[in-house]
Simulated assay, not measured.
Amino acid sequence: MTIRRRTVLGAALAGATGGVWGFGGAAEAGRRRTVFVAGDSTAATYATADVPRAGWGQALGVFLRPGTAVQNAALSGASSKSFADLGRLDLILAAIRPGDTLLVSFGHNDEKIEDPARGTDPWTTFQDYLRRYLDGARARRARPVLVTPVERRRFTADGAPYLSHGEYPDAMRALARETRTPLVDLTALSFDLWTTLGTEATKDHFLWLDPGESPNYPTGIADNTHFQAHGAIEVARLVAAHARTLPGRDLRAIHDPDIPDTVLVWPPKRPAES
């Protein structure tokens, strides 16, 4: 177990860095600008029962100055279609205000075309649903940003990384160009990071734990999609560093290579599912 893992697993944690699904915080914050996150399990905020699992939306506030709020509405299992069809987009649009930002990141579950509730086609329905987010934000004078899906941990037997999202990132890139929407190419950025780290070092970013390492995963886990705290922080760093229209970016934090896992906290329940 690394020192970084020991610090996060041994912490007594409460609260929710990165915002919650109930949007009261945004109203109470008055006129300060808020970053809303619409996404899936890779971005979601997790609970104490999930430690050390974390999503990049849960860690995003680490790289923003205190005057900027984060409302992380990312939902495990969601696609661009199911998130909207469940009314989650409507909740964001009811709360978002002029000058706020909406980060939109889907793709993992849109790829599940066998599931009619979630699957989309990259060049038709995926783009059509994403337009709802962009148009809804702009109608409220908020700023949408498209974020391509973070890449999974995928290596061949020879240790060569490979891409896993098919045409969905390309479809989002094309939509960003067409609609003149800022884009964070998180697929490419994360793929480059995983390539640099290689097969073993990436395990400290993804949810890889040995048996007995965490009381929440007593038999261990080898998850190549979701992150532990360190990975969530580093992916959030990529988003904050490259989302140049993001309000309140803390450049000092973005360039600090020693952000500890202990900056993250976990609420008692998953806020998006409460």
Rank of each mutant, 00 (worst) to 15 (best):
R97M: 05
L130R: 02
L193R: 14
G61F: 03
Y162L: 03
R131T: 10
A74C: 03
A16F: 03
G22F: 14
P52M: 05
G55H: 03
S190F: 08
I233M: 05
Q127N: 04
F63V: 06
R6T: 07
P267K: 08
G15W: 12
P122L: 09
A94K: 11
E213C: 11
T68H: 12
G15F: 02
E151D: 12
V62K: 11
R252L: 13
L91R: 15
T101P: 03
P267Q: 00
A176Y: 06
K203R: 00
D90I: 07
T245M: 13
F63S: 07
Y168Q: 02
D110H: 13
A78R: 10
G67P: 02
L186W: 01
T2L: 09
Q228A: 02
A117S: 13
E167Y: 06
D158H: 14
I254E: 00
H230C: 09
L238R: 01
V263F: 11
W208E: 05
S82G: 08
T262R: 07
T179F: 10
W21S: 09
D250V: 04
F126H: 05
P247M: 13
G87M: 10
A236N: 06
I96L: 01
L75I: 11
S190Q: 12
P169F: 02
L9W: 09
A43Y: 00
G99V: 05
N72V: 10
P268C: 11
A38K: 01
R143F: 04
V150K: 06
W123H: 14
W21T: 02
D170T: 00
I233K: 00
P149V: 06
M172P: 02
D170F: 01
F23G: 09
T148N: 06
G39K: 04
A94W: 07
T68V: 14
H165I: 00
A232N: 05
L207Q: 02
D261S: 05
R138K: 11
D40S: 15
V263E: 14
E273T: 13
T181V: 05
T199I: 15
L86P: 00
S80G: 07
P169E: 07
R33M: 12
L163W: 03
I92N: 02
A44V: 06
S41W: 08
D261P: 04
G22Y: 12
Y129L: 03
R249Y: 04
E273V: 09
F227A: 11
G159W: 06
T196K: 14
M172C: 09
P257S: 15
T34G: 08
A44R: 02
A84M: 08
N224Q: 08
D50A: 08
D100M: 03
D90N: 05
G220L: 05
